[in-house]
Amino acid sequence: MEWLSAPFEVSFVQRALWGGVLVSLVCALAGTWVVLRGMAFLGDAMAHGMIPGIAIAAVLGGNLVVGAAASAAAMALGVTALSRSPRLSQDTGIGLLFVGMLALGVIIVSRSRSFAVDLTGFLFGDVLAVREQDIRFLVVALAVAAVVSALGYRAFVALAFDRRTAHTLGLRPGLTHAVLLGLVTLAIVASFHVVGTLLVFGLLIAPPAAAILWARRIPVIMLGAAVLGCVATVTGLVLSWHWGTAAGATIAAAAVALFFVSALASGVRQWVRA
């Protein structure tokens, strides 16, 4: 027990724990819809699409969250515009914007004097540097995500399983898709400071993907994803403390490892039943 509790006796690890738990809850709400709709590639692209905005804000001394939100919104608008072309598939548009935005971000960061440090911070975050204002921001982001998920639940469900049915029911699938992109953007922007743009994808996808193997109802999937995300956060912080590894990367690795454990257990369950 002392081995488990020792890291959390330090104040900055306690703040990292709260930050990681809040990120897990936000990502559980948004990530469930990402997994159900098969938007994993889009989510990854949007996570990387924030880098130019973050880089510009860092170079100019502005607010990183504002820069990240603006860049992610531009990425979402670009994907929406390119997906309307009948001659280009959505994956093609996402791939082009993914590479273009990532390259632009690296170019901007490379113009600064602290290229290696800045780029590493953008990609991998620094969960141990979470401040109280970051936690307050995450609380607000969680509240907004919960309200959007509750109000848009019926429309999100219809869109996730049958876009034509959503249109027939008068649920405006185009607007619903835009709101869903906004929810994903909120989760990514709120989380990048804790685990970075590269690793936020792990918490956004891995816990919901692990939970969906065991649950059939969407609220249960969200709850399972939240629990698994919190477990990954605690596990990652404890292991990084004792092993001396990067905390954000260890949390993301723990989330992915939990998915594979869940997949293996689910496979064993199906084999036993058969």
Rank of each mutant, 00 (worst) to 15 (best):
P7V: 07
F8A: 12
V26D: 04
Q14V: 13
P7R: 01
E9H: 12
W33L: 10
A28D: 03
G20H: 02
F8Q: 12
M50G: 13
M50C: 13
W33N: 00
C27R: 02
R15P: 07
A28W: 04
A58L: 14
G43L: 02
V35S: 04
S11G: 01
L42F: 12
P52D: 05
L17R: 12
A47P: 03
W33V: 02
F12G: 10
M39T: 02
V35Y: 06
I51S: 09
C27A: 15
L22S: 08
H48S: 09
L25N: 07
V34P: 01
V34Y: 04
V21D: 02
I56V: 15
A28Y: 03
M39L: 15
C27H: 00
H48C: 10
G19V: 07
C27F: 02
V35M: 12
I54L: 13
V10L: 15
H48W: 03
A40H: 07
L42Q: 13
I51W: 03
V34F: 07
V10T: 12
R15V: 01
V23M: 08
R37W: 04
V21H: 05
P7K: 06
A45L: 02
A57V: 05
A47Q: 01
P7F: 03
V59K: 08
A58I: 08
L29K: 07
G19R: 09
G49S: 13
L17C: 11
M50H: 01
L25I: 09
F12N: 11
L36E: 04
A57L: 11
Q14F: 05
A30Y: 02
L29P: 05
S24G: 15
M46H: 04
V13K: 01
W33C: 02
F41A: 13
I54M: 14
L36Y: 03
V10Q: 14
A30F: 01
G49R: 04
C27Q: 05
I56A: 14
A57M: 11
G53M: 04
V13P: 06
L22E: 02
A58C: 00
L36K: 05
P7L: 08
E9A: 14
T32H: 00
V23P: 09
G53V: 04
G53P: 11
C27M: 05
M39F: 09
A57W: 07
M46G: 11
V10K: 12
A55R: 06
F41W: 13
G43V: 06
V10R: 14
L22W: 03
V21Y: 00
A45E: 06
W18Q: 07
G20A: 13
S11N: 08
V26N: 12
V23G: 01
A40D: 11
V59T: 09
C27S: 14
P52S: 02
F41H: 08
F41Y: 15
G38L: 10
V21E: 03
I54P: 07
A47G: 15
I54V: 15
G31T: 03
L17F: 14
P52A: 04
L42I: 12
L42Y: 09
A57I: 06
V21Q: 00
M39Q: 04
L29N: 09
M46E: 08
G49A: 13
G20V: 03
P7D: 10
V34C: 06
P7I: 06
G31F: 02
Q14G: 11
V59C: 00
A47Y: 05
A55P: 10
S24M: 02
W33S: 06
H48F: 03
